[in-house]
Amino acid sequence: MHAQYFSSVFMYLRNPFIIFIYKILRYMKILVCISHVPDTTSKINFSEGDTKFDTAGVQFVINPNDEFGLTRAMWFKEKQGATVDVVNVGGTETEPTLRKALAIGADSAIRVNTPATDGIYVAKQIAKVAQDGGYDLIIAGRESIDYNGGMVPGMVAGLIGANFVNTCIGLEVEGNEATAIREIDGGKETLKTNLPLVIGTQKGIVQESDLRIPNMRGIMQARKKPLNVVEPVDTATHSEAVKFEKPKPKGDIKLVDADNLDELINLLHNEAKVI
């Protein structure tokens, strides 16, 4: 009797239709890539003969583009059920940034313990984490505001063979299907595709007013959430930032009297030659 019961339950579970339903109902697994970047107001200076970014006095934050994506991930979690993990490739100094993402609501964090040397190197680390975790949706900022590489999301997608939508400003997922809005030059387009999916995102996926400031409870909970440190995969970089330079200081402005706009037009036409 019992044996029969179990075997029929077993059969039932292996029924393709049940597996299909299970897949639809199954929580989406989301991975959000978090880049640890200087706050937008930071003064940018370099040290060691202009070869290193000078972090002295610099406040680090979650890359703004990533924060928009993280907020969208929280909505998936709250509205349709999902688990949200965050990942950063970096040294121990990035942990406060990951903790902030946990305080905002991510379930767990992964830090790949290695400096973020270049785009492909970071993408390969994230691709490994993505594959090991079997994520359905990977959300990354369209670019990080420090090196502005704009390549990690696309590279991750290319490496793991997932679909990819860049400059994504809208995303809905139902079952295995995704509808995404992509910002294009001068407008937007709506795309349909399937999971697994990687998006490169920015403001628009959620609005500025939707961003969440972690509250005390979130901060307390974040301390107890897992932050797993994993060792990097050994892989070569493709590029190297050899030195930095600051833009030349701007020459003095020419002020034109509000009653003498002809002079402005003259300057724009004859001096700047832009009209």
Partner: peptide, 15 residues
């Protein structure tokens, strides 16, 4: 450009 135009960066490609 890097740091959103706040700096330039010289990059060597090794591939």
């Amino acid at each position: 450009t890097a740091f959103t135009n706040k700096a330039f960066n010289f990059t060597k490609l090794s591939t």
